[in-house]
Write a protein that binds this DNA or RNA. Structure first.
Lengths: 346, 346
DNA sequence: GAAGTGTGTGTAAACGATTACAGCGACAGA
DNA sequence: TCTGTCGCTGTAATCGTTTACACACACTTC
């Protein structure tokens, strides 16, 4: 069906070797011959076959990316970060989203062999053991925000724990004592680290009995639904810290719909600092996660790994998060919620 | 470095052909032999080399996706739609975002040869001519929201025009006469179709002198910035129709910051109906674009095309949009903006 | 017992590229 | 004239699979 190097060679009256040399700019070729070959290639719309080439060169110049089921702005941004960096270094991206099913993730990993030079795994579902078992030895892998394990692979993480601690301290500093935490999915690594940070910081204050944990799943809707549960509590929290921005926005919406004012009646904070966070009303106080950098760094690390060869030492890194104060938690100077009753609002 | 089928064959004391047969489930193989082979394969962590396999089978079971520079929730959702559908049909995804540079897009297209069975092009920058010149003949391609042209490829679009017309009519029905339009990037196909719909619908009302067009670029920030320009107008519009939701949210934020109430003082509408649209305050009236379906349909079409072979007729399709009325434009019963002065607010 | 019918397995030729190696002029130096 | 070098080009092996074909053997069936 499609044109091969052989046909170009025939058209230009040379051997395939010479065509290859011209198209790859290697070896000495007479200028006239080269010109004739280039013309023939263009005329026939010749495009080299990537698969065939990678078979012999043992390089695909492609990076594989394994995504989790859960999408959203976060992953969009992350992939963008990876993509920009990968392209700059001359690599393509083979993206695949894994399924909840373990057999399917395995299948995905296997499908990558021979199509990519290395793998970036963003999916916490995929266990290191699965990777080990389904990849050739010394295959370069970078784990992002994954449960790490014994450290067979390079890994990259975001300081979810530290960010959560900082946020709780910020809220406490604003005078809040009863701070609820709206959790993410139990299996999610980010979610559990943020929860751990929350618990730690609350414990630090010495009144763990004020901890309130509410189930959520990272989607807007679960934030929206949490409002009802919060409003029906006997001792209502004066602040809610959501494990991500999407849920925080759901909360915001739910409260406002019920006439509960934010931040006057209840303070709200999120996590991730997604672009839209500054554009909701009131702008959301959040923890900034350098998402695109995270992606770029992962790509960097992977490329470094596969260019250095198998002898390289394991590398692990944690990217810092940063508290971003906007108005959804009120200002530290004269917050009106302080004058509200300690236990109820709305 | 990595284990090949030959080593598995040696380990299991059979020929490579038999190994291949077992691993692909083709041809009759003795149960004992099969078991021995499977064991050897597992022991050696054998994973078949995708490139080599696709070379001979002439199939990669991979779909290529060409993205534009601009990302965001829209593309995230679109890719998800493609991914779900592709996976269901047994295909992988090779994603590549094109650069503004034409040479680079060309490079991208070429890199796809031999790595994918077909291409979904979401990037309006890539011209059909470029595709023709850099792809083998009869290569299956589906164009999404692209300027179509003479129709050499399958193509899929969203009824941006119809959606914009519907929105303007809705606003007019609510009593608005002076409706501003916040434009998207000039080069963007969706943006220009929406603009065309706006102009058409405004003209339909017979008072084209009330048309106000403001430059924008689809990002939140440009919506936020537009507020200032709108507020400084001599004859202010009573409603603003943004070419997408991100800008509408920027507008919302900007107006509220300046004490302009939405929808009482000014009505706002967006386009796309991104998930977050219902969670801002007030919830955003928008035009629903079936993004995930658009992606899924594109994958569908592509798979159909490459399974049918080259003889298939060109297929083009337009997916309908749907008006989603929330409260950012006010209710049709008793909107308070009607009592406001016709020319100013705030 | 000869011929036919399966089953199970191996041999070797593809697929489309890259590249080591060899060959062939031409030309320079001895 | 012989030899060595250099520039250009062709031959053929190679990468890791799949698969058409052939072959060996064990059964039926006449």
């Amino acid at each position: 069906m499609s044109v091969t190097i052989r046909e170009v060679a025939r058209e230009a009256l040379v051997s395939v070797a010479t065509v290859s040399r011209v198209l790859n700019g290697k070896g000495p070729v007479h200028a006239d011959t080269a010109k004739r070959i280039r013309k023939a290639a263009k005329r026939l719309h010749y495009v080299p076959h990537g698969g065939a080439r990678s078979l012999i060169t043992r390089r695909t110049t492609t990076l594989g990316v394994l995504l989790p089921e859960l999408y959203g702005e976060f992953f969009s941004e992350l992939i963008r970060g990876i993509d920009v960096c990968a392209r700059r270094k001359g690599y393509h991206l083979l993206v695949s989203s894994s399924h909840s099913d373990r057999a399917e993730s395995e299948e995905m990993v296997r499908a990558m062999r021979g199509r990519v030079d290395g793998l970036i795994v963003l999916s916490p579902d995929v266990r290191p053991h699965t990777l080990k078992a389904n990849l050739p030895e010394h295959f370069p892998v970078v784990l992002v925000n994954t449960a790490g394990g014994p450290g067979a692979f390079d890994s990259l993480a975001v300081d979810n724990f530290g960010g959560a601690v900082e946020m709780v301290r910020h809220m406490v500093g604003l005078g809040h004592r009863r701070i609820a935490f709206l959790q993410g999915p139990a299996a999610n690594r980010d979610a559990s680290e943020r929860l751990r940070g929350y618990r730690d910081a609350i414990g630090e204050q010495g009144h763990a009995e004020d901890a309130v944990e509410i189930a959520g799943d990272f989607r807007e809707e679960s934030g929206y639904e949490a409002c009802g549960r919060i409003l029906s509590m006997k001792r209502r929290p004066s602040a809610v810290f959501a494990a991500n921005d999407s849920m925080a926005i759901g909360l915001l919406c739910g409260f406002q719909e019920k006439g509960v004012r934010v931040p006057q009646d209840v303070a709200i904070a999120g996590f991730d600092d997604i672009p839209i966070a500054r554009y909701v009303t009131p702008p959301l106080t959040s923890v900034r996660v350098p998402i695109a950098e995270l992606g770029a760094r992962a790509a960097d690390l992977l490329v470094a790994g596969l260019e250095a060869g198998p002898g390289r030492r394991r590398h692990r890194e944690t990217l810092p998060t940063r508290l971003v104060v906007r108005s959804s938690c009120g200002e530290s100077d004269g917050p009106s919620w302080r004058s509200a009753s300690g236990t109820g609002y709305g």
